[in-house]
Design a binder for these strands. Structure first.
Length: 405
DNA sequence: TCTGGGGTCCTAGGACCC
DNA sequence: TCTGGGGTCCTAGGACCC
């Protein structure tokens, strides 16, 4: 049976939501109407564009470029900080509205949802539902969305990306040649900046070129990815709308340092702060990790990572930190200026599943109790309340947003 | 006064086992 | 005395997404 899929994509999400929040707090200006961006903090060396207004886009400002570059293109550009707490709220408002249409909703990111409408169309057409959602979000929530209307997720996503903002586009199978094959191959979902030049060398320039190219050759050259891109170019995608909440497969935090660090003792402090946060999130998910991974980025933007598989899965701050420290010592070449430090845990399992397994790992009960006590204090007073990084300098370096993603 | 932070999935090579 | 070969686990890195 043919599936009925919608993709809902908030236009300039972070910027629109910041605009609404500012207006709510008495702002005279609507930053959606001026050249403006949401961006990081240049003084903390995280100055990149996260979202842009239409006026900024007209200047040629692009997402993910530096604010410095954006200013060069667009003199007088206004820059505003992000606020993930309010973004989460607006995202939830959108989700609640969409739930009136179907409970089969996949939250693909904070500002994008896929809806499986197959069982929920009643007497309406899919396009009518898409238009209604587009209108209601604007009227009831105050921001605009693009809606893609199609029979699978890939085509719905491609459709919502056509012209913006505040539009509803269909991309049914018979429309593929006119609406999709004419586009440059770089527009295809999952084709990034590494693959596109390789396709150009093969004389593949449009999505249509890719669709008509030889699948076997793509497979030989790009492996699984090659098969996938050929199928996508032909509008083939059988993946389901994943509406059930999935457990995370890994949890990580990283930080770009305000200035490069060359002392391993300072790197240790950063790792401790990261371990605190990662382990805290892990315990909040009621999960245990078996792999610890440390990432370093040097002043030349070269990334290296080392990981270690543990004998027993853990959620202990101490154990994660000590493993991370060990990895750091292994990989850090003395004197290298470090720009970014990251810590992540992978190979996660449910705490519950571990408890029913036959072999219980040895637990450090004292440490466990300390972790739990600190977690409670954090829940109560916020993440910054306590840190075991005895040196206050660490706090100066490491500022975490309390509640993100 | 340049280049974030959070993820997922895949690949390739080495170790090790039978 | 011509050195196999398949399977799994582990690790490092790459590519892509928002």
């Amino acid at each position: 049976m043919e599936r009925q899929i919608l993709h809902v994509d908030v236009n300039n999400a972070f910027l629109s939501w910041t605009a609404l929040d500012m207006l709510k707090n008495g702002s005279e200006i609507d930053i959606r109407e001026i050249p403006a961006v949401i961006g990081g903090d240049e003084s903390k060396r995280s100055g990149i564009v996260l979202a842009k207004s239409m006026k900024a886009k007209e200047c040629g400002v692009k997402t993910a470029e530096t604010i410095y570059q954006a200013r060069m293109k667009c003199p007088g550009l206004k820059v505003f900080p992000s606020n993930f707490k309010i973004y989460r709220e607006y995202s939830n408002q959108l989700y609640q509205l969409l739930l009136e249409y179907t409970d089969k909703i996949e939250r693909f990111s904070i500002d994008e949802c896929f809806l499986d409408m197959t069982q929920y169309l009643m007497n309406a057409t899919l396009l009518q539902k898409g238009k209604e959602i587009n209108r209601r979000v604007k009227e009831e929530l105050g921001f605009t969305v693009n809606v893609g209307v199609a029979h699978n997720k890939l085509l719905a996503k491609m459709a919502s990306d056509f012209t913006k903002p505040d539009r509803v586009h269909t991309l049914f199978e018979e429309e593929i040649p006119d609406k999709m094959w004419t586009l440059p191959v770089s527009e295809l979902f999952m084709l990034g900046k590494r693959t596109v030049p390789k396709l150009y060398n093969m004389q593949i320039r449009t999505i249509g070129d890719l669709a008509k190219s030889n699948k076997k050759i793509l497979q030989d050259k790009f492996g699984k990815h090659g098969v996938m891109m050929w199928e996508y170019a032909n509008g083939i995608d059988n993946s389901e709308v994943k509406y059930l909440k999935e457990k995370p497969k890994g949890i990580g935090n990283s930080i770009t340092l305000p200035e490069d660090i060359t002392e391993i003792e300072k790197l240790d402090e950063i790792l401790l702060a990261l371990a605190e946060h990662v382990a805290y999130r892990l315990r909040k998910e009621k999960m245990l990790a078996k792999v610890v991974n440390v990432q370093l980025r040097n002043n030349n933007f070269v990334d290296t990572s080392h990981q270690k598989k543990l004998g027993n899965a853990t959620d202990s701050t101490k154990e994660i930190f000590e493993t991370a420290k060990e990895l750091l010592e292994q990989m850090y070449r003395k004197g290298t200026p470090i720009r970014l430090v990251g810590l992540r845990v992978d190979d996660l399992t449910d705490e519950e599943e571990m408890q029913i397994s036959l072999f219980q790992p040895q637990k450090d009960e004292k440490q466990e109790k300390l972790d739990k006590t600190i977690d409670k204090l954090k829940e109560k007073y916020g993440y910054h309340f306590i840190t075991r990084a005895g040196n206050m300098q660490t706090e100066d370096f490491v500022k975490f947003k309390k509640e993100e993603t």
